[in-house]
Write a protein that binds this DNA or RNA. Structure first.
Lengths: 334, 334
DNA sequence: CTGTTAGCGCTTTCAC
DNA sequence: GTGAAAGCGCTAACAG
């Protein structure tokens, strides 16, 4: 091996005086190895600073230590948090995540999926149930494990990990009703992209309708959720329906914006207008009045999904649905 | 090809009636191909639903379409935003990012780097200049391109993309001095992990000292930055030094928390106490009073870095430093 | 413009 | 316990 060549199995084998095969066994901890041989090999690996070439390994074994991850966005803190959970579960393993961002576009998801599949990943982690037919076909044809995250209100391909957004919405509605709010409004963001926000909305409506109520007014911002959008959209809603006594927001970002609107407009939160969010983000809990909201366990969702996927390399007979649940955070705004 | 076999180049070649090599050429758009042949190959690829095996390609060409990315954390929105920039630059290419999270631990960075290198990436994108000796050696020995992000206050291995945090701190100090603030305090978070926060702090101090001033008081939260930490730490600082007229926060998360403290404690922001952040996050600009802060261009940093790396597969003679700059956001809190 | 040949570095299978 | 041999699916180099 000249000085500028990257060491390979062959170099290690030669230095340790064994066959390549033996070195490979040592590395993968597979098959019986004499203690003495193992030591020589380990030493050789260290001296050479040998790092296995995963591409070669992957090719030879037609499998890899990669987990393909498909996220709709990185702008919404929720997804980086899911990714943290995924990284946490992978930290003690040799697996590496390979992340693609779809921008809530099923067509793009399909493209990225096919380039992820090209690396022969051990598993694919994706978000929600909105896939193209081709995506679904690729996923079922490839024999990799598949986790669909966030949502459990539909039939998964292999395993789904998340919470029932419909139930979360329902619990939100009940919470407000039980506290005496009757003139309830809704402030949301773009539904085309966010099926789960709509499910929560529907859950709220269901709770209301069971009590003979309906949403007094609703306003949807035509774009992704953000604090600023929440702030502006609440202002619009209140201009149209000044008599509402509570507002459900599509998520915490929007709700925090709503809180800021109230501050700026001199509206006394809860007394004059109750606010309710979704997600349980830190920022909402750091407000002068902690936000009333629902905690979705994003980190846990990512972590659980990966743990389940790694349990077995093949799909189980039965599709699995794991409910990571949610909790109402009482807060002080509703 | 039986029904359950994954199609390979050979299958495509056979179906199109050409050699494997020709198919490979078509796929990689390399070398001259007769229009007619190309069409036949493309058709065969489509009928079979062929997806190239990147592991094989990577092995054969000893190079890959991977970009290794090392980020210290995903909890701080700043890094997901950098990652967005990276994804944006990669979106029009066939490259895929492979992300590792180091938790601000140089030892862990080293481990993850070696497992990223095992995939023969075309380039490595990492954060800051705090590497172990071994990391630095691996990076220089491997001939991959290397970008070090966020910071430009040191000599890069290959290319650095970011801003001068010292200068950003200095500009912050000047801003406050010019507006007449003289009793300036500092609220920060853990420096062990965040060298850049310290550089900004030092910049502030430098500006003050040029005017014959020093920081009146400072308080550092022993942990990562967060809104809650900012809120609590400002409270602590004010208990110790009630007479300060302005506070510089280590970043916007902390500053927003400080704003919340003021709200809760009935302190009139700016009139009684000016607040200044760093980063220019959306949340700060959505506050009832937009936060005075410095905009760091995280998205641009990620995007620029990748664009530069992909320009050339080999390191330039000269190490390159790209300053993505910063702007003072006037805001209303200072 | 296209085909042939020879690997890339590893794992698998089967001997011994 | 260990080794030899045969690929994995692709690309590179060279012919033609």
């Amino acid at each position: 091996m000249t000085q500028y060549e990257v060491p390979t199995l062959a170099h290690v084998a030669k230095l340790a005086g064994v066959s390549e095969n033996t070195v490979s066994r040592v590395i993968r901890n597979k098959g019986p190895i004499a203690e003495d041989t193992r030591n020589r090999v380990v030493k050789a690996i260290e001296t050479l600073g040998y790092v296995p070439n995963r591409a070669a390994g992957s090719l030879a074994s037609s499998g890899s230590l990669l987990i393909g991850v498909l996220l709709p966005s990185l702008s919404n803190v929720v997804f980086p948090e899911v990714l943290q959970g995924i990284h946490a579960a992978l930290a003690t393993t040799a697996y590496q995540p390979m992340v693609g961002v779809t921008n809530y576009d099923a067509g793009k998801e399909q493209d990225i999926l096919s380039s992820l599949l090209a690396w022969q990943p051990a598993a694919i982690v994706t978000t929600g149930f909105d896939h193209t037919e081709a995506t679904r076909r690729m996923l079922s044809n490839s024999r990799v494990r598949v986790a669909e995250l966030m949502d459990i209100d539909a039939e998964p391909i292999d395993v789904a990990v998340g919470l029932s957004h419909r139930q979360a919405g329902y619990a939100t509605g009940r919470h407000l009703i039980e506290r005496g709010y009757r003139r309830i409004g809704y402030v949301g963001h773009d539904w085309g992209a966010d099926r789960r926000a709509r499910l929560r909305h529907d859950g709220v409506c269901q709770a209301l309708s069971e009590t003979g109520l309906t949403l007094r007014a609703e306003e949807r911002f035509d774009g992704p959720s953000s604090t600023m959008a929440g702030r502006d959209t609440l202002a619009t809603l209140l201009a149209r329906a000044p008599d509402i006594d509570a507002v459900v927001f599509s998520n915490d970002d929007m709700a925090v914006g709503g809180f800021f609107h109230c501050l700026a407009a001199g509206i006394v939160v809860r007394k004059q207008l109750a606010l309710f969010g979704f997600n349980g983000l830190d920022i909402g809990q750091a407000l002068p009045m902690p936000l009333s909201t629902v905690r979705s366990n994003r980190f846990l969702i990512g972590k659980t999904a990966v743990e389940r996927l790694l349990e077995s390399p093949t799909r189980p007979e039965q599709r699995v649905v794991i409910d990571t649940g949610f909790d109402i955070i009482e807060g002080a705004t509703a």
